[in-house]
């Protein structure tokens, strides 16, 4: 029991010529501690969906229940919900505004009503959690490198002690090293802080390596919701909607077709290697 999404629909500009159904009939149940990936091409509705989960967008119809409470109930405190369901937007470093890293990370906790000291304790803890070097705590966030800025921005959300952390393409625009570091860090956070993580991504390779459950969105609806292995078995259908399975999935399927008796479920390099070695050696 954590988040339940029930028959959710969202329509942009209803009643006008520019009406677009951005989400259709979404049903989801997200349990505590899950590591979920959401993939889908631009315009498939992934960003719209995650903004519903913390109440930034209100659904046209349908409901969302957080820990059993209907978030659309009158009197439900959406500001508290936003601190429980932390959302890190794409390019989150664009929201930094304070003169020091520390002050910026304190912004969220202070909005929660914490005093200076408590806010700073939270800030230090979350900056440590994202492995941000202590000697730069009082530097200007605008003078950091791209990867460091992003860590600070993620720490800014973490400092609110969310129970669920949603990240919208946290690796966009980073180089491979930065990409791996951020993903490792997110994976660590989930283990050490026991939070639910929802990772929106374009990269099948990244998703395959980290998540336990994969949701594929297409045309505003959920196309698949299963383990990565099970989802990537539909690699042909994924291709039809402009998505691609990891390269190794193609290799495994091609090998099976060529008569080499490999299991085709591998989605990461390590899995594929083990399987090929098992069959060929």
């Amino acid at each position: 029991m954590s988040i339940i999404v029930n028959e959710l629909n969202y329509i942009y500009n209803p009643g006008t010529a520019m009406e677009v159904q951005a989400l259709r009939d979404i049903n989801l149940e997200i349990s505590d501690g899950e590591f979920i990936g959401i993939i889908g091409h631009t315009g498939s509705g992934k960003s719209t969906l995650i903004q519903h989960l913390n109440g930034l967008i209100r659904a046209t119809s349908g409901g969302i229940f957080y820990n059993g409470a209907d978030i659309y109930d009158e009197g439900y405190d959406l500001r508290t919900l936003r601190t429980k369901v932390g959302l890190v937007f794409q390019y989150p470093e664009h929201q930094l505004f304070e003169t020091t890293v520390m002050a910026d990370v304190c912004y969220g906790p202070k909005n929660q009503g914490l005093d200076e000291k408590e806010a700073m304790l939270r800030a230090v803890a979350s900056l440590n959690a994202v492995h941000f070097p202590e000697k730069h705590f009082y530097d200007s966030p605008f003078e950091l490198s791209g990867g460091q800025k992003r860590r600070v921005a993620i720490a800014g959300v973490l400092a609110m002690n969310p129970e669920v952390l949603i990240l919208d393409e946290p690796t966009a625009g980073l180089d491979p090293q930065g990409r791996d570091e951020i993903l490792e860090m997110v994976s660590d956070l989930r283990r050490t802080q026991h939070i639910t993580v929802i990772l929106v991504s374009h990269s099948m390779e990244d998703v395959a390596r980290y998540v336990d459950r994969l949701i594929v969105m297409n045309g505003g609806g959920i196309m698949y919701d299963d383990t990565p292995q099970a989802v990537f078995a539909h690699y042909k259908e994924l291709e039809e909607v402009g998505l691609m399975a990891p390269q190794v999935t193609y290799v495994m399927h091609a090998l099976a077709e060529a008569g080499i008796p490999v299991e085709t479920g591998a989605t990461t390099v390590a899995e594929a290697k083990d399987e090929i070695v098992r069959v060929l050696c």
Binding site: A272, I276, L280, C281
Partner: peptide, 20 residues
């Protein structure tokens, strides 16, 4: 140098390391 290679290249390299 912290650069990754395409998945296929990496798989081939791993397999080679494993003796193929």
């Amino acid at each position: 140098h912290h650069l990754t290679v395409p998945q296929v290249t990496e798989l081939a390299w791993e397999l080679k390391k494993a003796g193929l």
